[in-house]
């Protein structure tokens, strides 16, 4: 009584046949198979019984006030005061805002380090300026000395 089809093939053809979704060619092929396979014929019979029983399972009628209750709940939600952090934007901006806050905190924590570097650079510039000024003073002093040396010689020549 073993079927030549594997389990998956059996199931797929069985369901397809019982729900009438197989194409005509496959349906004909399967019907020929059913004619010679008692196992699959039994499966078809059982599947049709399952389908019939499931079809008999009718749901109860809906409560008359279903829609009323739903709209009342919607109204209640709309009228309820929103929490201070909601701002009609919901929760979605919370994550990028939190990330921005973290980045800002990191930036602020690192700020003193950057000013120290700037201060170091400022100190270097101040030293350079002082050296330049000293050099200029030295040059003026040398110039003054050289002028004093040459002045009496000029008088003697006249």
């Amino acid at each position: 009584m073993n079927c030549i089809l594997n389990t998956n093939e059996q199931e797929e053809l069985l369901l397809g046949y019982c729900t009438a979704i197989l194409d005509p060619e496959t349906t004909r092929t399967y019907k020929r198979h059913l004619a010679s396979c008692e196992h699959c014929r039994t499966m078809v019979e059982l599947q049709k019984m399952v389908d019939e029983s499931l079809g008999d399972w009718l749901p109860p009628t809906l409560s008359e006030n279903f829609d009323q209750k739903l709209f009342a709940r919607i109204r209640a939600e709309q009228e309820a005061p929103k929490p201070w952090w909601h701002f009609n934007f919901g929760w979605k901006p919370a994550i990028p805002l939190a990330l921005a806050a973290i980045l800002l905190a990191v930036f602020l924590v690192r700020e003193p380090g950057k000013s120290e570097l700037a201060q170091q650079q400022d100190g270097i510039k101040a030293d350079e300026i002082a050296e330049v000024e000293k050099a200029l003073d030295d040059m003026e002093a040398l110039q003054a000395l050289s002028t004093a040396d040459t002045a009496p010689a000029a008088k003697e020549s006249i």
Binding site: E11, E45, M49
Partner: peptide, 15 residues
Amino acid sequence: FRAYESLRSSLRQFS
């Protein structure tokens, strides 16, 4: 496939 197989098994007694 597994679900329908279970359902068919439950109705074998009626076949």
